[in-house]
Design a protein around this nucleic acid. Sequence first.
DNA 1: GATGAATGAGCTTTCATTCAT
DNA 2: TATGAATGAAAGCTCATTCAT
Lengths: 209, 209, 209, 209
Amino acid sequence: MTAGHAAPDDPAPQRRKRRQFTRRQQVLDTAARMFFERGYEATTTQDIGAELGLLKGSVYYYISSKQDLLFEIVQEYHQDTRAYFERILASDRTPIEKLRELITTETAHTATNLTRSSLFYTEWRSLDPDRQQTIIAERARHERAVESWIREAQAAGDVRPDTDPRLATFAIFGMVNSVYRWFRPDGRRTAEEVGAEFTELVLSGLSTR
Amino acid sequence: MTAGHAAPDDPAPQRRKRRQFTRRQQVLDTAARMFFERGYEATTTQDIGAELGLLKGSVYYYISSKQDLLFEIVQEYHQDTRAYFERILASDRTPIEKLRELITTETAHTATNLTRSSLFYTEWRSLDPDRQQTIIAERARHERAVESWIREAQAAGDVRPDTDPRLATFAIFGMVNSVYRWFRPDGRRTAEEVGAEFTELVLSGLSTR
Amino acid sequence: MTAGHAAPDDPAPQRRKRRQFTRRQQVLDTAARMFFERGYEATTTQDIGAELGLLKGSVYYYISSKQDLLFEIVQEYHQDTRAYFERILASDRTPIEKLRELITTETAHTATNLTRSSLFYTEWRSLDPDRQQTIIAERARHERAVESWIREAQAAGDVRPDTDPRLATFAIFGMVNSVYRWFRPDGRRTAEEVGAEFTELVLSGLSTR
Amino acid sequence: MTAGHAAPDDPAPQRRKRRQFTRRQQVLDTAARMFFERGYEATTTQDIGAELGLLKGSVYYYISSKQDLLFEIVQEYHQDTRAYFERILASDRTPIEKLRELITTETAHTATNLTRSSLFYTEWRSLDPDRQQTIIAERARHERAVESWIREAQAAGDVRPDTDPRLATFAIFGMVNSVYRWFRPDGRRTAEEVGAEFTELVLSGLSTR
DNA sequence: GATGAATGAGCTTTCATTCAT
DNA sequence: TATGAATGAAAGCTCATTCAT
């Protein structure tokens, strides 16, 4: 973990390549950070404008509505998530290895994208029903995958037979998704270290030995 | 697990003895449920009134402000929490046993008090700074206790030496505190079963054997 | 000036004879004092009730409306006023003597009935138009009388000819009616002393000698 | 006195130079007039908006709160007051001349700034305690100055020795501050005439000859 | 006489959003 | 691009008043 005063969600190098630094992106980033810090409802368009040196009306040159703004931010996170999820799904590893990779990656990813991930987990209720569905469905896919991997690993004798795959899945996501609550980029551990540690914890908890 | 259409946080028998069924308590319960379902910000005093068959102004016969309402609800949960936490702290068990009991109890307690616990974890940001501190401090106490128990158990050789007690603590609370997100009283498992399963998972994950 | 901790508008002996000490009168007195202290708008029926050991709804056993309450209080003052005014009007003194007596009496009366007089001068705007008229008309009668006495005294050579009777009248009432702003029954001067001093000031200000 | 339908507090020429005619000033002026006519409590933000051709919410584009609005209006008056008061205080005239000038100026000033002065004297109780203090302190300064001038003039033999300087001060301010109650800019007398007349009345009332 | 409960109207204030310039 | 001005809908809250008990 690099020390320093890094802002949470300071766009990492690899992200910088993907997302251009337009003024629009700046608006998204600023809003994301403020939503993270104060919550979506508690952040006014005026606040966002002020942070950008704009009046609240002017923000609308860049966005179509406050809710759209939130949705786009959440979408960015969502798409990154989908990328590695599909990759793991499509890989030809064993269930236990997939499990290991998903936990590691998702934990690290959450830690690396603090603000966006927190919105994904906490502010999605401010979205309209349709959009909420998108989020819920995505999460459900992850959960179903993990649950089935556990079930398969159980069948293969790699996971304790007395474990309830469903509950174990909830436990895993509870753990992984809580990272945004306490992780800080300038803390004692890197995102990768946290991913590794959490993975170890879960797998040895599930393991038959 | 009892089947049926039980409302979340349907006051369990033992609670019924503790909190009388005054009209005031009914207001608290209704508000708690609505805050849980829609979020604090998204629930208006008008909504609460309508649910109770009152006009929005009439709700103020029972409460002093919407925020106070939230605080009192959260306080109720908070006090229950404190009760078992102090009991465990004061007991003369081994660290590993205390850990076991806290995880079991806290998981089951969260599951049994769905709405209040969810507010405790999700809506506390709508409270004023002073009141937020109350909540944060309480959570920190639990965390510090768990972390030190892990550390002691590690010293006693009961917990793997390569585990980071801090991260393990975060993992535990992430897991336990996420229960309100998916647990439903009429689901497949009872609150106690979930508590037992989670405890097993964590302890075997930490264990040297 | 009687020393002591007398409440403003502590009913003087002669009043005690006129107004019985019913619970109703107690409500009027309490309300009068509170209106005086905080203003009519700023005093709620709840405040009044609390002071009397009643709930706000219960106050309505004694009054018909908050505005009526104010009106009755103001009326009490008004009637006392009218009593001495008619007496002076009907007397066969010289204009200058009538002037002297009105100023003396009105000043002392205001000082003796602090709370009611203050309402008469400051809160009458909270009354409905008809009732406002009652007050305005009463004041106008006093003013017209004073103005005409000054004019007559001027004709008789007792008052300086370069004085504008109208402005002098306004000056007199401005002075006399301001008493409620600073007079306190436990202060350095008695109501009568203030009356005498003010009279002296005005009359020597108007006098040809 | 200029004839006509002049609005009370119609900005006099010299004021017009000092305060620009921004929309914001228009809001202040309109509110001042309405507070004067109906009282602060009785004037709603809706009323003010309607008078300006705005919705109540829109008024908040120009003000931060209704109470701030009142305070700013009162402040404007307060500052003008302070200007001439300091000038008189600092002058090297005799006490009796200072007295003369203050009465003359304050009377005329009140008459020239009807609405603002009336708020200064009648609606200050709607301000919060801190702001009330500002007003009270300012008034007390004027009173203390006048009282000490009278006392000095008395020592110099210019004022009757049997006069109570304290009561005389109250009389003077009662007179002067009542001007807003009856003065109308299109009336029989100009503000200056009233100032001169009142001064004459007071000084000959106090004078040893 | 007094209470507890509720009403209903109105108030101040906030805020996302629009739009002519 | 951005501003200034305004909208309009809604929110939290207050309070005089009513009325069955």
